[in-house]
Design a protein around this nucleic acid. Structure first.
Lengths: 261, 261
DNA sequence: TCACATTTGTCCGTATGTATC
DNA sequence: AGATACATACGGACAAATGTG
């Protein structure tokens, strides 16, 4: 809260790789570089900016981690523009949960609240195409379950499709980020086919409510659905937390050098 | 959507700075390094891991951008452990919004919906401290306006304080990101003192509703408040969009080198 | 299959800027 | 003000990976 608005960016004190990074980022945002494009080689960028290659490399690390590009080595390799910002947000959000900046309770609560907003908007804004995508997702998942196979991807994918059907990009981003964490947790615990079948059935009910444009029913269904999911999610978290303790190894190589503030 | 769960991480092909980064990250997560601690110097880390200094530097860039540490230069400087993961997520979310071309309508709609959730939670969870922070914000802003000065920071800060009072980290992240965008827009258009005074008054009403633990009133006030803000926001956006076209410069220094895929 | 060129990945030596004492 | 410690940055070199002829 102590932050004051910044009108002028400091020029002298800023690190060179930061400047290079933001410069390239600007170009990407302005559309000069589009996904799929390839940046010049590191040495060429260094030459053009008149800096060393190490500086360029550090700038590229920032852009890579931020999800703006991906670096491939070898002949014909280089920095290729991508747009995987959402992935990086999901990863950071996972870090935040693991570092206990965000509790599982907060996460599930936010998910429930936001997904209720999402389905409410989806009732209003879902197009024919959205609905057929949702139905496709369900029939695909149901077939898997009928074959005795888990429908993991369809389970996660349903909520993302729903978010897209809300036609609000903010919700889409938030839900995609949250679902990435949910996927991470769910992938660690075995699911019974029974549960998967039940989940798929509840998804179907929600789609029906959207088709009927019955907003209140849709919200009610989502509320009940996530209430059920919530319980399993929390228990899975405790399992993972328990497993983590076993993994405590002696990686204290640097520990001796730590100077505590 | 197409993502399959990853069971094994590739070991052979991984880059050294990635390994160093995750190694240090692990130590932080395991509590070997705590916020405030200082890592050994770059050369010392390089020596201990038996790698070059540049490799360590690139690893530090990743950790820095991820919000795990901050690097201070100069004597007695070095890498100091922090926990600013949430800030980095907000920044990424801002990137995502800027890249995804989310419309102003979507943004304001999402803001309204989410801030109503926030105030609803704040009514439940706000502590005495939260409320005094909110009141402080308002009195500070009111004094500024009485002096004939705009209360820009307090205006933005109020909504962030409110999000914190909801005691849900997910909401905090989302609101901080949205407010960063809002701040960006508001800073470009002149505000009358009249409007600022009205905004501040409405903020005060909301805090009173929180003190009274009157959830329905609080939500109603927020809805009206953002409905009012919405109108000004949209008109300002159109102005800015018009200005933006002028700003298209020839930053295509590297453009000639682009090879389109 | 076999070189070959390209490009990233990594290391080293050195110099400079900067913050602290 | 001077010495010290550290990050920052440059340039050269070689290794490793990868696509191409």
């Amino acid at each position: 809260m102590e932050k004051k608005p910044v009108y002028f960016n400091p020029i002298k004190n800023r690190r060179t790789f930061d400047e290079i990074s933001t410069e390239i980022k600007k170009m990407i945002m302005e559309g000069i570089f589009k996904p799929g494009d390839k940046l010049p080689s590191e040495s060429e960028i260094a030459r053009q900016f008149n800096v060393g290659r190490q500086t360029v490399r550090e700038a590229l690390r920032l852009l890579e981690l931020s999800g703006f590009l991906r670096v491939h080595k070898g002949g014909g390799g280089g920095s290729i523009i991508t747009n995987t910002i959402l992935d990086t947000i999901s990863k950071s959000l996972l870090d935040a949960v693991l570092m206990k900046n965000i509790s599982v309770a907060e996460l599930t609560r936010a998910r429930s609240d936001i997904e209720k907003l999402v389905i409410s908007q989806a009732v209003e804004n879902a197009t024919e195409e959205d609905i057929s995508l949702l139905n496709e997702n369900i029939s695909k998942g149901s077939k898997k379950i009928a074959r005795g196979v888990q429908a993991f991807e369809e389970n996660i994918g349903f909520h993302i499709l729903l978010a897209r059907a809300s036609k609000n990009g903010v919700f889409t981003i938030v839900v995609e980020s949250i679902m990435a964490i949910v996927a991470d947790f769910l992938s660690r615990i075995p699911q019974t086919l029974e549960i998967s079948a039940r989940v798929m059935g509840e998804h179907k009910q929600m789609v029906d409510a959207i088709v009927e444009r019955d907003k209140e029913l849709a919200i009610k269904l989502m509320d009940a659905h996530l209430g059920f999911v919530d319980v399993r999610f929390k228990s899975s978290f405790e399992e993972i937390a328990a497993q983590k303790k076993i993994h405590q190894e002696g990686k204290a190589a640097l520990q001796s050098e730590v100077t505590r503030a």
